[in-house]
Design a protein around this nucleic acid. Structure first.
Length: 476
RNA sequence: CGGGGAAUAGCGAAGCCUGGUAUCGCGCACGGUUUGGGACCGUGAGGCCCCGGGUUCAAAUCCCGGUUCCCCGACCA
């Protein structure tokens, strides 16, 4: 077990150290690709399962579309091909022969799904189509970082088709809310819902919405997006239906995605100098039992109780493990902490006498986080404690985010604010404004939060009146 | 893709300038003593020194080319 770089010394080094030491992921022998190890994958799976549940609860079904997409499909939507061309991986040879038409490895699946939907949809009765797929996509990224930006990444992409714009917009906002709820309630990550500016829109969308999170170094991370695709892809792929009034109309479509980037956010937002800190709802191991004994005869008694506790907690639905390795307790404590296990259960000879165990919570280091509790009703005690930890991690992240967003009313104030955090600034939605600020401050327009006070202010760049403010921050 | 740094055992590093038996700490295996916050002693295993070429009697070390990683920038739902 090695040491990790303190967050304050070098945040980026710290992040990479934690990923290595907590056994989350490893580098693959391919540029920009990672191998997600079992511990990291289980975390991703837990997040995925909770989000998938939310998709099902809002009426969606999963399906699977191909990895390869004919090159010509990408070219059917002008903005889409323009946006994605520079980062496509293209297959030109198959089975030893030159392909007549190159195949691209999907960077996202709007096109091939649009093609299929066009064949499936005939009538307004076929709508809405509400399909999601869990898969991986490839984008030839120039600069990569584990989980945050990798050449191949795992995500989900939802694709829906509707009879009119009201319904498709409802879907766009519904899924934005689903992402926000998932980030907050499952992952303890506070995010800000908002509309992307014109210059930050998805290639091919009329409107893009995102949730933006603040990482531990105060940089922003676009954590999920939901797109109003208007009729752009419907027109490109002839996605038409016969409406009630017996006229043929183009569908209105949406797409929305969230990737394993959010796993990176969990690491970056909650982790500390000791290692990971995982919210109980998504932690691969929620509680670890560490047995403590001196003499062999003590070991027998302690292990018997530890096994009993293990079984009863498992039966109560807690993801619990027993660390029965022949190491000293101290080493096991550090291991639990590095891996971010929310609750540690210490059982030693002392506890046997009193029918108790010692609980140590990961979110409060050292003595203050330790309590001795009765073995009676232990599962309920731990569940309650996990709820507290979950809430505490969210509260800490929310406080941090709030403390580092500054409301500004001039360009000078913005310049200063983005040096140390986020700025909330009145601006008009103009690519030239975004570009100027980005060039001069390295901060980008993250989004126009949905939650606005409606007060009229002056755009800090153009001086024009505006009732909207946008978040500017340096971003991943 | 431009600029900078790096690659030596699973991890972290020394050695490279000045070519000559690959070294240290952690980890790992075995034995013993230990065990309520990273135990100790002993024994041992583990190396295409990133890859390919060149110079040389001899290359981890010098030269050329490439790959990957990290940082900064450009780019990036």
């Amino acid at each position: 077990m090695g040491k990790i770089t303190p967050r304050s010394t070098d945040y980026s080094e710290w992040y990479l150290d934690v990923i290595r030491e907590a056994d989350m992921a490893d580098y693959a022998p391919v540029r920009g690709c990672i191998v997600v190890k079992p511990y990291g994958w289980t975390l991703y799976e837990n997040m995925r399962d909770l989000l998938d549940r939310r998709f099902k609860d809002t009426g969606h079904s999963n399906a699977a579309f191909p990895l390869f997409i004919p090159m010509s499909f990408l070219q059917k939507e002008a903005h889409h091909v323009e946006g994605f061309s520079p980062e496509l991986a293209v297959v030109t040879v198959g089975g030893g022969e030159q392909l007549e038409e190159p195949l691209v490895v999907r960077p996202t699946s709007e096109t091939i799904i649009g093609y299929m939907y066009a064949q499936w949809i005939k009538s307004y009765r076929d709508l809405p189509v509400l399909i999601n797929q869990w898969n991986s996509v490839v984008r030839w990224e120039k600069r990569t970082k584990p989980f945050l930006r990798t050449m191949e990444f795992f995500w989900q992409e939802g694709h829906t088709a509707h009879a009119n714009h009201e319904e498709s917009m409802e879907e766009v906002m519904r899924m934005l809310e689903v992402y926000h709820e998932h980030a907050m309630a499952d992952c303890a990550l506070p995010t800000i819902k908002g509309r992307k500016s014109k210059s930050e829109r998805f290639a091919g969308a009329d409107n893009t919405f995102s949730i933006e999170g603040m990482m531990g170094d105060k940089k922003a991370l676009q954590s999920a997006t939901s797109h109003d695709l208007g009729q752009n892809f419907a027109k490109a792929f002839e996605m038409k239906f016969l409406d009630r009034d017996n006229t043929e109309k183009f569908c209105w479509t949406t797409s929305w995605g969230l990737s394993w980037r959010l796993t990176g956010a969990v690491i970056m937002v909650h982790g500390d100098d000791i290692g990971l800190r995982l919210p109980p709802k998504i932690a691969p191991i929620q509680a670890m039992i560490v047995p403590i004994y001196k003499k062999p005869e003590e070991k027998v008694g302690v292990m018997a109780v530890a096994d009993e506790v293990l079984k009863s907690l498992k039966a109560a639905g807690i993801r619990v493990k027993l660390d029965d390795r022949e190491d000293t307790p101290g080493a096991k404590f550090y291991d639990c902490e590095m891996r971010g296990i929310p609750v540690r259960i210490e059982i030693g000879p002392r506890d046997l006498q009193t029918n108790s165990v010692l609980l140590a919570r990961r979110d409060i280091p050292g003595k203050p986080g330790k309590t001795i509790v009765s073995r009676d009703g232990l599962a309920d005690t731990i569940k309650k404690l996990m709820d507290e930890i979950q809430a505490n991690l969210l509260a800490q992240a929310e406080a941090f985010q709030k403390a580092n967003i500054r409301e500004v009313n001039s360009y000078d104030e913005l310049k200063e604010a983005v040096e140390t955090g986020w700025a909330l600034a009145p601006v008009i939605d103009d690519p030239a404004v975004d570009a100027k600020i980005k060039e001069e401050t390295k901060a980008t327009n993250r989004n126009f939060p949905l939650d606005q006070d409606g007060v009229e202010r002056k755009c800090i760049i153009t001086g024009q009146p505006t009732r909207e403010r946008a978040i500017f921050a340096r971003a991943y």
